[in-house]
Amino acid sequence: MSVPILELVDVHAAYGRIEVLRGVDLRVPAGAVVALLGPNGAGKSTLLKVVSGQLAATAGDVHMAGVSVRNASPGELARAGLALVPEGRGVFPNLSVEDNLRLMSCAGVPAAQVRDTAYTTFPRLHERRRQLAGTLSGGEQQMLALARALTSDPALLLLDELSMGLAPAIVDELYDTVRSIAAAGVSIVVVEQFARTALRICDLAAVMTGGRIETVGAPDEIGSTMADVMLGGAA
């Protein structure tokens, strides 16, 4: 069996004295789409913060493609092929669309190629290329943030609440793109509040509650567990 692209071993993490992750074990096989589901406060976003280097794990280990990255900084991880689309619009609001794309051109990818790819996938961005990103609609901002995932050719893509605050039609459009990224062989971890949306596109689903992974399984196996978890936790 090949080395998983991401492996978490008994990861603990805390904000001050409050422990949010209490021993998370998770394997993301190379090329798989894993959905991370669970109610508010389960620790999903915290888990992504630990994986992307924004929050240090207090215990446990994180491996990316077999290498321990527990102490790596966000910048180092980004240069090692990890891309995160953070919760709530991962764009620079006072920069134009074009400038945002320029920043996405990581080492080795020429800026012109980044722009071409982005504009081909999302023609709407081309129409607004001179506009400041902060003046785009929420959906267009997420397209721009996703463009990075498209163009920087990451090994592992983390998507945090992509659908937040967006109309259903736009969410569908965005997840179509996610599916095509996955088809190109990129491993993806999707954090979603809306279970149905995520279950439609994932290979594996992990359910989190109280800082631990409750269950991992194929999307159709997870359905019943999901109902229990969500009804217990959500209002």
């Binding site: 508010n40 902060g134 937040m164 259903p168 149905r196």
Partner: peptide, 20 residues
């Protein structure tokens, strides 16, 4: 059509440009 989860989220509104 995401009937099971709609309306429970609390996030910020669009950031007005003048405030950035």
């Amino acid at each position: 059509h995401c009937d099971e989860g709609a309306g429970t989220e609390t996030t910020s509104e669009i950031e007005p440009v003048t405030e950035t």
